[in-house]
């Protein structure tokens, strides 16, 4: 038996909004620790991972690990039927269920909606993702700042360079109509309301596709802050963490490399 109840649907709605433009379908892996998924986009440029830890849920029960193959567009359609303050309960049989049940209940518990989502058999490989890699540079910034930088720059062109030196990050773009750049310095005071922190072991300069950096702005409502981790020649890791360590959405983006 798998049963998981979120107090408010907002949490899962936001997480799905952050991943559904990158992944069409994925296995949601349920274990005693929580709900997680990982999937690459079709061109294998971006890997998206998501975890909702068991502590994110008001009720969480997973007797046996199970994998629910879900079409992201379909689950999003069903969750549109939940008001943001409605609770969401997901129920599935852990013995080869062919559908998962979604129950939405309003705050006064006098309106209860039931939906069944058909599950799919999805053949997906689990990839080994190195944890806590020794990154050359890590920058943390308010997620609203992230949205502004990459929505602005990706309008100019799709080749965005991130260069991080001591205490400064430079984001630049080259496009058909021209180019642009933006420098962001580490904020001086720890009391600053919207701090930018930059930790550099070695300066790093890498180029990435702007289309993806802009797509990741869909995760901004998840988290007040975002962390970008860079190592020359390796994928860029971007993390949006849910409050209270309830989980995260992480993206790994392949760099553009010199020919």
């Amino acid at each position: 038996m798998f049963e998981a109840k979120l107090t408010e649907s907002t949490t899962i709605k936001r997480v799905l909004d952050a991943i559904k433009d990158l992944i069409q379908q994925a296995n949601f892996d349920c274990s005693a620790d929580g709900l997680s998924l990982q999937a690459m986009d079709t061109p294998h440029v971006c890997l998206t991972t998501m975890t909702l830890r068991s502590q994110a849920f008001e009720v969480y029960r997973c007797d046996r690990p199970l994998s629910m193959g879900i079409n992201l567009s379909s689950i999003s359609k069903i969750l549109k039927c939940a008001a943001s303050k409605d609770s969401v309960k997901i129920v599935a049989d852990d013995e080869g269920a062919d559908c998962a049940e979604f129950i939405f209940e309003n705050e006064s518990a006098d309106r209860i909606a039931h939906f069944e989502l058909k599950l799919m058999d999805i053949d997906s490989e689990h990839l080994s993702i190195p944890e806590d890699s020794d990154y050359q540079a890590i920058i943390s910034m308010p997620s609203a700042e992230y949205r502004r930088i990459f929505s602005d720059l990706s309008i100019i062109g799709d080749t965005i360079t991130i260069e991080i030196n001591k205490n400064t990050a430079c984001f630049s773009v080259e496009g058909d109509i021209g180019n642009g750049s933006l420098n962001l310095a580490q904020t001086d005071s720890a009391d600053e309301k919207n701090p930018v922190t930059i930790n550099v072991k070695e300066p790093v300069k890498m180029t990435f596709p702007g289309k993806y950096l802009n797509t990741f702005t869909k995760a901004v409502p998840i988290s007040e802050f975002v962390t970008l981790c860079l190592t020359d020649g390796n994928p860029l890791a971007i993390e949006f963490s849910l409050p209270d360590e309830a989980g995260f959405v992480r993206y790994f983006l392949a760099p553009k490399i010199d020919q």
């Binding site: 080259e174 596709p209 760099p255 553009k256 020919q259």
Partner: peptide, 14 residues
């Protein structure tokens, strides 16, 4: 401008 790489060389199947 650089060529877009893919992730297949970075993340191996478990």
């Amino acid at each position: 401008m650089g060529k877009q790489s893919t992730l297949t060389s970075f993340f191996r199947p478990l």
